[in-house]
Design a protein around this nucleic acid. Structure first.
Lengths: 112, 112
DNA sequence: TTTATATTTCGAACATCTTGGAAATAATAA
DNA sequence: TTATTATTTCCAAGATGTTCGAAATATAAA
């Protein structure tokens, strides 16, 4: 998919999060923190075939949601925290939405 | 689609936001606030055929992202702000992700 | 240098989504 | 009533996504 605007990038990333298996992967990655998790450990956590998992990992990587690094025969996946923050920042930028304390929204263009 | 867990509901909603046209609709709805926007005005804003727009509106409504109310011949769409807050809350609940001030994260299970 | 482990790529079947014109419905105005 | 406006539903074609077994690749260990 061609991603030629901030909105299109955000949509592409949201679409990847918008699948139960991939949101499960996301959850595992968040909990793993910066150090990441081995693909095999994600597979253990989710209990799905390797080829299916690999497909989802590939998609998430393609839109910048995660990075991979090899250590020996093991591939570690790490969430791209900056990307996720930028994505939620995009949603947030429109409005107070997503802010825990909605009252402190910068502009008053919604949440009336 | 069967939605039988919090994760599956969140995934279904994220998938709906994960389409450029629907994210554009979302943006229009956010800006419109509680009072909502007429379908026809969304169509003017996005410049797409009515049947296509209607299809996207229907999908977004189905997962609870918006509500519709009729006034005369005009149908008004309003963002379900509570739903969106719950969705972002779900993402947030895992971790500090999405919080503007990441340093104040409640648990220290990530963002190390 | 053969075997085992970790993961990806390939391929193919099946499912779902996307798009938009044409026809249908809902509500009002003439 | 009949016409007009606002929007949806129907339909069908084409595009994209999902799944997973089998085969391929990468790396290390025996």
């Amino acid at each position: 998919m061609e991603v030629n605007s901030e909105l299109e990038l955000a949509a592409a990333q949201l679409a990847e999060l918008g699948h139960p298996t991939r949101l499960g992967i996301f959850r595992v990655l968040v909990r793993a923190g910066r150090s990441g998790v081995a693909v095999g450990d994600i597979q253990l956590a989710l209990d799905i075939p390797g080829s299916t998992l690999s497909h989802h990992i590939s998609r998430m990587s393609k839109v910048g949601l995660m990075t991979q690094r090899r250590d020996g025969r093991t591939l570690y996946c790490s969430l791209a925290f900056e990307t996720v923050e930028a994505l939620l920042g995009f949603l947030y930028a429109e409005c107070c939405i997503g802010m825990p304390q909605a009252q402190t929204a910068p502009q008053g263009n919604c949440c009336d």
